[in-house]
Nucleic acid binder design. Structure first.
Lengths: 188, 188
DNA sequence: AGATACATGTAATACGTTACATGATTTT
DNA sequence: AAAATCATGTAACGTATTACATGTATCT
């Protein structure tokens, strides 16, 4: 628990960043998995600084703008992160997806309407998959020759998970469209 | 948002239940996806009753125990649920899994240690998969001949998703164990 | 002229988890 | 004799989302 702090450390382990940068990263590139608001980022950064896990690298001031405070990971921060990575992982994962709950109620509605819902969701995941595959192609090129101690390796692992997840989701949609379709059209 | 109310309605759409029953169902059979505490269930039940989506079917009183209040879905509750099911679904799903965040940091630690982590997680998902497959075999038997308007159809859809998810997770673990393994043993 | 990006931060609100309180019965 | 089960509910806490406040430069 309290994974956000580790999310912040994970990003800072790769490069120095400001709170704003972190927010952008999480809601952008790493978006599929995590999202944060500024209210979580800034206080947590202060805490981490207080604990000596990160340190203020520098402040970029543009006079008309709030100071841009860039943080970097300290050695003890790097240690804490590595320790956490190797800790026995929480086996409880949530997998709370509204749509799955909707599917649980598929028996309540007209098959044709449920099919339409499934198709809509399917399209959404197709788009996501396509985006991930694009990124992946790029990444794989950059990855050649690099060893597993390169940060890109971690990026690739997460991206790969995302790709597999989207594929699996799509197949599930297809399967249940098929099942519901066979039903409605079947005994005529 | 506020999916818990729909989770409660989803269960009550199948059979009348008490708050306690609901809690047990969610943390047991439907456990992989949802969990709730009593503090969420009881207030929400009161709210739903106030809105006329559910009604008190009866109270079982055993003198030495708190009254067991059993609720059932009303017609307007069933309508509200069906409407929600057909609403354009939220495309934002979280997929927040601590272990994926750990994997993002795999480059920070010794490959052999990460492999051990992956193997541990793999075992966990193997066990889950086995449990789901058991349930699924049972379900498929009970399902034969039933149409898509049977609640079991919804159960099957969710279970199927769980099975696919676990399989996908396993494959991902295997792939990354392989990749890290090939690394360490490779250029010797 | 108006919206968006930059950049920090706070406040209000919603959602979720853990722990507590009660109290007899049944299981270990 | 101790612990778990049943059954409701409240309280305290922790985490997350949304909105707000500030203020200039740049893009449309």
């Amino acid at each position: 628990m309290n994974s956000i702090r580790y999310a912040l450390l994970s990003l800072l382990a790769r490069e120095p960043l400001s709170g704003y940068d972190i927010k952008q990263h999480m809601n952008g590139r790493l978006g599929p998995f995590w999202k944060v608001g500024s209210n979580q980022v800034y206080p947590e950064l202060s805490k981490l600084e207080g604990e000596g896990l990160i340190r203020l690298l520098g402040v970029e001031q543009l006079s008309y703008r709030p100071a841009r405070k860039v943080y970097e990971l300290t050695d003890s921060g790097r240690e804490a992160l590595a320790e956490w990575v190797l800790e026995p992982a929480e086996t409880e994962f949530s997998l709370r997806d509204d749509f799955i709950l909707k599917a649980y109620n598929l028996w309540l509605v007209e098959p044709e309407q449920m099919i339409r819902q499934l198709e809509r969701i399917q399209q959404h995941h197709e788009a996501k998959l396509a985006a991930y595959l694009d990124k992946s192609a790029e990444l794989e090129r950059a990855l050649s020759g690099k060893t597993s101690s390169d940060p890109l390796y971690g990026t690739a692992a997460v991206l790969d998970f995302g790709i597999r997840h989207e594929r699996q989701y799509l197949e599930w949609c297809q399967e249940w469209i098929r099942r519901l379709d066979g039903e409605g059209a079947g005994p005529k």
